[in-house]
């Protein structure tokens, strides 16, 4: 369970949010939306533990080690889709078989691209490879920054199904998105300045 108390953050002398408090319990998704520059990415990075310049409390309980997928997709251009995912699992302390990696890539319809270097893929394909992590890693907490960007409609559908499955098994999701997402158990948070 995620508890946020009196969170305030300032960037470049502009206040992004002040005294923000909210809770996300297991099985619930929180969608953060707001205008460009309203602090969505900063808030997600604070929640992930990547950005420290804030005041207030962020308490994940026992669920640290979130799976964070940000604007930078975390893929090496010179490594194949398979190598990239295998590395992601390893750095996450997970021992993975190559067959599991291939299966995760099949789930996001990238089964035919396992040996292709991510540098020679399209933007949307890279997005899919990076989202294949959701099928491979076992983190109970997901933090996704604009996961629907550059992904086609079948990809969105596949992702929504995966998220709903994650929520029904007691996972937590915090995401930012400009579009409405058809998720069960959705909470909304709007950032305005």
């Amino acid at each position: 369970m995620l508890q946020v108390n009196n969170l305030s953050c300032e960037r470049a002398n502009r206040e992004l949010f002040r005294n923000l408090s909210f809770e996300v319990s297991r099985g619930v998704a929180l969608r953060i939306h707001g205008l460009n520059g309203s602090g969505k990415t900063t808030l997600l990075r604070i929640l992930a533990g990547l950005y420290q310049e804030f005041e207030g409390d962020v308490d994940w309980g026992e669920e640290h080690y979130p799976l964070y997928i940000g604007h930078r997709r975390g893929l090496k251009a010179l490594m194949s889709a398979r190598e990239n995912l295998f590395w992601s699992a390893a750095i996450n302390g997970q021992k993975t078989k190559l067959s599991e990696v291939d299966e995760a890539l099949r789930q996001v319809s990238m089964g035919g691209y396992v040996d292709i270097a991510c540098g020679s893929m399209s933007e949307g394909q890279c997005g899919r490879v990076s989202l294949a992590r959701l099928f491979l890693l076992h983190n109970p907490v997901w933090i996704l920054d604009e996961p629907f960007n550059a992904i086609d409609s079948t990809g969105v559908q596949c992702l929504v199904e995966r998220i709903n499955k994650h929520l029904s098994s007691g996972g937590i999701l915090v995401l930012s998105s400009h579009v409405e997402v058809p998720l069960t158990n959705l909470q909304e948070l709007e950032l305005r300045y």
């Binding site: 992930a48 990547l50 940000g70 930078r72 390893a90």
Partner: peptide, 22 residues
């Protein structure tokens, strides 16, 4: 530098494996 730019460094920080060993 490249790990920073493509976001793999973020994964190294957030992963369960200690960043120090990486």
């Amino acid at each position: 530098k490249e790990d920073y730019e493509d976001g793999t460094l973020e994964q190294m920080i957030l992963g369960r494996e200690p960043l120090l060993l990486v």
